[in-house]
C-alpha cells in the first residue's frame, strides 16, 4: 500500500508542530540539492557539508521565515545555502565582463569526444560566482527558472539571461581549452 506523498507545506507544518519524522522527510528530500549546490559553488566538500548543516539549522530555528507564497521550499533553502556559501568564500566577486566570443566552429563537438567530464567541471568552477550559481541550479540540478529566481533573489528574466551568458562563457572556455 502506498502512502500519499506529503507536500513540503504539509511536512513543514508537521515539523513546526514538533514532528521529527516530517523534518526527516524534508531533510532527505532537499538536502542533496543544497549539498550539491554548495559543493558546485565552493568546490570544497567540507564547506558543502557545513553549508548544508547550517542551512537546515536555519530551517529548524526559523521555519516561519519561509513564505510559501514567494516560492518553493527548496528554492528558499538553496537561497540560504547561497548566502552561506558566499559568506564562506569571502567577498562576492564582481560580475566578470563577458567577452563575447564566437562559438561557430565545431570544436565543441570535438571536445565532447576527446575531453573528459573534468574539463566541464573545471570550466564551471572557473566561472564567476554569479554565473556559476545559475549553472549549478538550472543545468546541474535542473531547477526551473522560477525556483532559481527565488533562490537567487532576482527576476526570472535575469536568471535566463545570466544562464545564457554563463553557457556562452562555458563554451568559450571549453573551446579555448580544446584549441590550446
Amino acid at each position: 500500500m502506498h502512502s500519499t506523498p506529503q507536500t513540503d507545506g504539509d511536512l513543514l507544518r508537521l515539523m513546526m508542530a514538533g514532528n521529527e519524522d516530517a523534518f526527516g522527510v524534508l531533510y532527505e528530500r532537499w538536502s542533496p540539492s543544497v549539498y550539491r549546490f554548495a559543493w558546485h559553488m565552493s568546490g570544497d566538500q567540507h564547506m558543502a557539508e557545513e553549508v548544508t548543516q547550517d542551512t537546515f539549522m536555519t530551517l529548524v530555528r526559523r521555519p516561519t521565515m519561509f513564505d510559501e507564497t514567494r516560492g518553493t521550499l527548496v528554492a528558499w533553502l538553496v537561497g540560504i545555502a547561497r548566502n552561506l556559501t558566499r559568506r564562506a568564500l569571502g567577498a562576492v566577486e564582481d560580475e566578470e565582463p563577458l567577452e563575447e566570443c564566437a562559438t561557430s566552429s565545431d570544436v565543441l563537438s570535438d571536445l565532447t569526444r576527446r575531453e573528459t567530464i573534468e574539463a566541464v567541471r573545471q570550466a564551471v568552477a572557473a566561472l564567476p560566482p554569479v554565473y556559476r550559481e545559475v549553472v549549478a541550479l538550472c543545468d546541474l540540478q535542473e531547477m526551473d527558472y522560477r525556483d532559481a529566481a527565488t533562490a537567487l533573489d532576482c527576476p526570472v528574466g535575469t536568471v535566463r539571461s545570466r544562464l545564457h551568458r554563463a553557457r556562452t562563457l562555458l563554451m568559450t572556455k571549453l573551446q579555448s581549452r580544446c584549441l590550446a
Binding site: S31, P32, V34, Y35, R36, W39, H40, A48, E49, T52, Q53, T112, I117, A119, V120, R121, V124, V135, D139, L140, Q141, E142, L174
Partner: peptide, 11 residues
C-alpha cells in the same frame, strides 16, 4: 556535458 557532470552526491 553538464548533465554528465551533474553530481548524485548526498551529504
Amino acid at each position: 556535458g553538464l548533465a554528465a557532470m551533474a553530481s548524485r552526491a548526498v551529504p
